[in-house]
Design a protein around this nucleic acid. Structure first.
Lengths: 213, 213, 213, 213
DNA sequence: CCTTAATCGAGACGGTACGTCGTGTCTTTAT
DNA sequence: ATAAAGACACGACGTACCGTCTCGATTAAGG
């Protein structure tokens, strides 16, 4: 029920009759309502009043917890992806990479993607925090990528020299970029192209690293 | 107006000196005002009324030409980058690539970047058009990249086999991605990293291309 | 607001001293502002935005209470004439009648007249209500007329047979009609003419009443 | 075709193919279109642009001839009632009076009434002209009333002393007043009441005229 | 157990921008 | 020169959402 993508009253347990909610319980209800609204109308048409109504609470209760829409959405996303995803382990490097990109692509094709798109324009309390929040949306993915590559080096599939920060982060970034421009869903062909034409060649190239003339 | 549903307006006399502007002239005035406002308040606070005021015209004249803010901004950008930029020609491939990325990075650090950020969230008349508009914002850059690489192949700096669509587009995409997350200005170090750690290795690697098991 | 269809507003701080007005207090402020604007610019140039500004509130607060300008004006008038005016009692019938017509004429020479004129063209929610509202603007006057005439019959100044609905209502109607055509102020000569040439003759004529052949 | 109360293109002869209209011909087309629009949408929703469109001409041609909507409507009405109506002559005074009031009442139940209502609020170029225009709308009726009453005095039905300006004008004024408040159609009962309870008694009362104490 | 302070639910409030419509003026083109 | 067509500048319309505030009802904690 965390983020049922449909249903007009999804994500809101009926609270009437019961005692008035507060604290943690209310927090959860609000965040669930946020995700539900996000899935239903998208970030652009996300309205605080609607979220409050869906959560059967008031706008004041929202603003007491989060200063604005952007922060609320950030919190809602943080709540959602609570369970840590294990790094894919298909046996082959290529399989792992593809699995990871596919997982990321699929995540974008949903309310996470909606939120990502919206948060790309909003400015949080300050620029640093804004950048931090945006970056955090992808740290999980970057970490998994690191795991995969480390495992590959241990297996001897790729040289240790191939590992550098740019190589780790660039593939997911390309997926994001495609999503932001062309939207979801992301064609699997693109993912295969990134892996086969860019990532694997880069990872397996002979270690010289001297391109500076 | 007593009986009219809309205001009487009482036809205010035109106060400006010259003749009333029309057509192309007015178009230009509006688009310039749009760019000026964009640079001043950013996409988020861009308001049709303010643009109209700055252009000394009316909202109606804006809406007669463009159906909404997003389309207006798109048109303004299209007008702005009228002059085709020549591909950099520094003599070396690396120099050309760096020059190109730096040009793109600098463009993002201004009202073009503001607009890019905004247009990433807006939905134009339909999804296809939306994607098309977004893609068009980068076609110039991609074309220049093609020129540079072609020249390099002619010089024999890189094998023809290195050229494929993914290789052409991915470097600018990484710059954009960084901009969207961390904002402008984009550190030159990042650009150098992209060129030295990703682009040049990929372009100069031995031709095998067979990674599919 | 980047992604929101409506403005960001950025929640301007309340600048006034006292606590935020609500309910009855705000109602009164709005209605008073309405009357003030009415007196200043007339019904024709009466604008909701101006009224809101004068009342230091927002258009939304106006529209939450009244669906349109006409209803707002009706409400403002209703509020204004709260104090019931006592029927004139000069001792003589002629004196009473003149006093009443003069009171009505004077009322028209002000914002009440402005409103009357405007409301003659507007259509309220439905025709019945429209007629009712218009009629109500004059019920007070008609009632006073009834009182005067009743008192005169009690004194024996006029026969009971003289009293019929047409006789009661027609004098004020003539005043209104003159106002609508020639505007205010209404010449006292007209009022005297109505009383001496029409009303008194009618009221004091010998009781036959048989004009139907 | 002068004022067909229905039909989307009523009142506009097809002019295309033929030579471009000007002068009198165009005047007529515009005035007919005005009346047609008036009948169709009423004074409140009367729009210059719509009139121009219906007359297959331009707003400029309208404003070249009349300075605003009100004057245009006045002109249109003047054109319409071109043919002078003969005073009713039923043989009896009561019959004549009733016929006259009925004619006036019927006239109000149509586009003339719509226009009357609208013109009650508009201010023409200056107050004098405004009053004059409004008064002129009823001069025809007043003149007929004079004729009727004169004929009655000649017949000896009523004393000459009964004739005074107030008596002449007040009956039609009551009809107008009722129309403005309760709208059209005007119940025949009202007209009979005015004649029997007010007009005839006043006209036939014994000549004393001294009510001033 | 009964006060007392806090918080909740509900929604009013002041404000800003929206996109539309009508007015009366002006410009252009075709007749 | 004038008609037809319609663009233009202006301003009011009525709506939507924001973020703040007020109010009464409910609830947890303190005496």
């Amino acid at each position: 029920m965390v983020a049922t993508p449909a249903g007009p009253a999804a994500g809101a347990a009926d609270h009437r009759k019961g005692p008035r909610r507060r604290g943690e319980v209310l927090d959860t209800a609000i965040l669930e309502a946020t995700l539900a609204e996000l899935a239903e109308v998208g970030y652009a048409r996300l309205a605080m009043g609607q979220i409050a109504a869906r959560a059967h609470t008031s706008k004041a209760s929202l603003y007491k917890r989060w200063p604005n829409r952007a922060e609320l959405v950030v919190a809602a996303l943080a709540r959602q992806r609570g369970e840590p995803v294990p790094a894919p382990d298909t046996g082959s490097l290529r399989g792992d990479l593809l699995a990871l990109l596919r997982w990321g692509a699929q995540r974008l094709d949903g309310l996470f993607g909606e939120a990502v798109r919206g948060l790309m324009v909003e400015t949080l309390t300050n620029p640093e925090r804004t950048a931090s929040v945006r970056a955090n949306m992808f740290t999980a993915r970057d970490k998994l990528m690191s795991e995969i590559l480390e495992r590959a080096t241990e297996r001897g599939d790729i040289p240790v020299t191939a590992l550098n920060p740019h190589v780790i982060g660039f593939a997911p970034a390309l997926v994001d970029h495609h999503f932001l421009i062309y939207g979801a869903p992301i064609p699997d062909e693109l993912l295969r192209g990134i892996v086969d034409d860019l990532l694997l060649p880069l990872l397996t190239l002979p270690a010289d690293g001297a391109h500076e003339p």
